[in-house]
Amino acid sequence: MNSKEHLENKINQSKGVDYMSTVVAQKWGNSLGIRIPKDAADKIGIEQGSEMELKVIGNEGIITLKPKRIRKKYTLEELISQITPENRHKEINFGIEGRELI
C-alpha cells in the first residue's frame, strides 16, 4: 500500500467508513447500475434478490444503500393464539344509528 492509499484509509476510518471500493456505473436499460463487491455484500448481509432501500442525500453526492427489513407474515392461527383474557377488549355498544337490523 502506497502512502496515498494509506492516507485515504486513515481519512475514511476517521469518518467511520469500514469498507471502501471504487465501482463503475454502467448502463442497464434506461437506468444505471453498479455492482456491489462480494466483501461489501457479505459485510451487510445481502445476496442476489435482496431488496434494498436507496437514499440520496441532497446535492451532496451521497447515496446510501440499506437492506430492506423483511416483515414477518403472520398466519391467522398465530395471531389468534396470542389472544388472552388480559389483552382482549370488552364489547362496546355503539347504540342504534339509523335503521340497522342487528
Rank of each mutant, 00 (worst) to 15 (best):
Val23Met: 01
Ile83Pro: 03
Glu78Pro: 00
Ser50Lys: 01
Gln26Trp: 03
Leu76Thr: 07
Met1Leu: 09
Glu5Cys: 01
Glu78Tyr: 07
Lys55Glu: 12
Lys38Tyr: 00
Glu100His: 04
Lys15Ile: 11
Gly33Met: 12
Leu101Glu: 15
Ala41Glu: 05
Lys38Met: 06
Ile63Cys: 07
Glu86Leu: 03
Lys66Tyr: 01
Gly45Lys: 01
Val24Gln: 02
Met52Cys: 08
Phe94Ala: 08
Glu5Lys: 09
Arg71Phe: 08
Glu47His: 04
Lys55Cys: 07
Thr64Asp: 12
Ser3Gln: 09
Ile92Phe: 12
Glu91Ala: 15
Gly16Tyr: 08
Ser3Arg: 10
Ile83Gln: 06
Ala40Cys: 07
Lys27Trp: 00
Gly33Asp: 10
Thr22His: 04
Arg88Val: 10
Arg69Asp: 14
Ser50Gly: 11
Ala25Pro: 08
Leu101His: 08
Lys15Ser: 11
Ser3Ile: 15
Asn9Lys: 05
Lys68Leu: 14
Lys15Asn: 13
Asn12Gln: 09
Ile70Val: 14
Ser21Pro: 00
Leu7Tyr: 15
His6Cys: 01
Arg99His: 15
Glu53Lys: 04
Ile63Ser: 09
Glu8Tyr: 02
Lys66Ala: 07
Gly61Asp: 09
Glu77Arg: 06
Glu53Tyr: 09
Gly45Cys: 04
Ser21Cys: 02
Ile34Val: 10
Gln26Ile: 08
Ile96Pro: 03
Ser50Leu: 00
Ala25Asp: 04
Ser14Leu: 14
Asn93Trp: 07
His89Trp: 00
Ala25Thr: 14
Lys90Phe: 05
Leu76Tyr: 03
Ile70Tyr: 04
Asn30Gly: 11
Glu53Gln: 04
Ile80Gln: 15
Ser3Val: 10
Glu100Ile: 12
Trp28Tyr: 12
Leu101Asp: 15
Ile63Tyr: 05
Lys72Pro: 01
Ile92Cys: 05
Gly61Gln: 07
Thr75Trp: 15
Glu100Ala: 11
Asn2Ala: 03
Pro85Glu: 12
Lys90Ser: 13
Lys43Cys: 06
Lys10Asn: 08
Glu97Trp: 05
Ser81Lys: 06
Ile44Val: 14
Leu32Thr: 12
Ile36Lys: 02
Gln48Gly: 10
Asn12Thr: 12
Glu8Phe: 05
Ile70Ala: 07
Gln13Lys: 10
Leu65Ala: 01
Lys55Pro: 01
His89Asp: 11
Leu76Val: 08
Gly49Lys: 03
Leu7Arg: 10
Arg88Gln: 13
Asp39His: 03
Trp28His: 09
Glu78Ile: 01
Phe94Ile: 03
Ser3Phe: 12
Ile46Phe: 02
Asn59His: 06
Pro67His: 04
Thr64Phe: 04
Thr75Val: 07
Leu101Ser: 14
Lys27Ile: 14
Leu65Pro: 03
Gly49Glu: 10
Ser81Trp: 05
Pro37Leu: 04
Arg35Ser: 13
Leu7Ala: 06
Asn93Asp: 15
Thr64Trp: 06
Ala40Ile: 11
Lys15Gly: 05
Gly33Phe: 00
Gly29Trp: 13
Gln13Gly: 14
Ser50Glu: 11
Ser31Trp: 13
Leu101Ile: 02
Pro85Phe: 02
